[in-house]
């Protein structure tokens, strides 16, 4: 029973992080209508920002979060302005390929700048853990997941309670209708894309507390975010939280209960994508 609870706790903690990585992508898909393959690369850049700030200036990743949000948000706005805006009316194939090209370019730019090595930041409290009854969890994992879930909920509140958030929802529902009632569609798109990149950057910076960073780390998060989006229903921002829990728990249980599970857990997202796409393409939570 204790092991079961332990595995359950790991799964839930992982879900928090997954929610933060994928909610930004859900926003880009839902509002701008762009499936951004470079999302994981924004996360990777956020991770490198956190890593270098820690290694060079001893800035704690938690303190670096606002810097990461501003830097990646800015990069997102620039990316929107230079590239994404030009393909809004283009065929979906072209949109996908454009972001795919961006993803490859950013990833390999990081390889050119920082080599392909894995780099782990020597965070002093990385190995501390806390006990909750019979379950023990790592302190960084717990903090990261709590913050990630908090940021995800904060995004929901922004979307529901503020004028800007409502404007984004309006644009998502009907571009023409929104522009007729005086919403600047282009501004809403730029803001949504910047927010999306900023959230990915923050997720990346938080990751520095748990994982080594490398230029290639983005893809596995892009893939997992796709899996979560597919489970939630493409563009459904609100379904991201429950879908993240599904993926986090499934991975944790496969890792523990399947023989040789650690290697296979990477394949869990594929089974989820495949099963959901074939059986219920509109998503489980819609």
């Amino acid at each position: 029973m204790d092991t079961f609870l332990q595995v359950l706790a790991f799964g839930v903690l992982r879900a928090g992080l997954y929610a933060l990585t994928s909610v930004g992508l859900a926003l880009a898909v839902g509002v701008v209508g762009i499936v951004n393959f470079a999302h994981g690369e924004f996360l990777m850049l956020g991770a490198f920002l956190g890593y270098w700030l820690f290694v060079l200036y001893h800035v704690d990743p938690l303190v670096a979060l606002p810097a990461s949000a501003v830097a990646l948000g800015g990069l997102g706005a620039v990316t929107y302005h230079v590239a994404i805006r030009r393909v809004l009316q283009a065929a979906p194939l072209n949109q996908t390929l454009l972001t795919f090209g961006l993803s490859i370019a950013l990833q390999n730019l990081a390889v050119v700048l920082w080599t392909g090595d894995n780099r782990a930041a020597p965070i002093p409290y990385a190995h501390l853990s806390v006990a909750l009854g019979s379950v023990r969890v790592g302190l960084p994992q717990a903090v990261v997941s709590a913050l990630a879930a908090l940021l995800t909920v904060a995004l929901y509140l922004v979307l529901d309670r503020t004028r800007t958030g409502k404007a984004m929802q309006a644009v998502a529902q009907d571009r023409l209708g929104a522009s007729l009632v005086g919403i600047e569609v282009d501004d809403a798109y730029r803001l949504a894309f910047a927010l999306s990149a900023g959230l990915a950057g923050m997720a990346g910076t938080l990751l520095v507390m748990q994982f080594a960073v490398s230029p290639y780390m983005g893809l596995s998060f892009t893939l997992r975010s796709f899996a979560i989006l597919v489970v939630a229903g493409l563009g459904n921002v609100r379904g991201v939280l429950p879908a993240s829990v599904v993926l986090g728990l499934a991975e944790a249980f496969v890792e523990y209960y399947l023989p040789g599970g650690t290697g296979w857990s990477e394949a869990v997202f594929f089974v989820l994508i495949f099963a959901v796409l074939v059986a219920r393409p509109q998503g489980l939570f819609r």
């Binding site: 393909v87 454009l98 795919f100 490859i104 950013l106 390999n108 730019l109 990081a110 390889v111 050119v112």
Partner: peptide, 22 residues
């Protein structure tokens, strides 16, 4: 020239081709 990061140019060519050479 670019070592292990040579696909950088692939990415840029892909993005540029979509934008300017559809």
């Amino acid at each position: 020239r670019l070592g292990a990061g040579y696909p950088l140019l692939y990415g840029l060519i892909l993005a540029a081709a979509i934008l300017f050479l559809p």
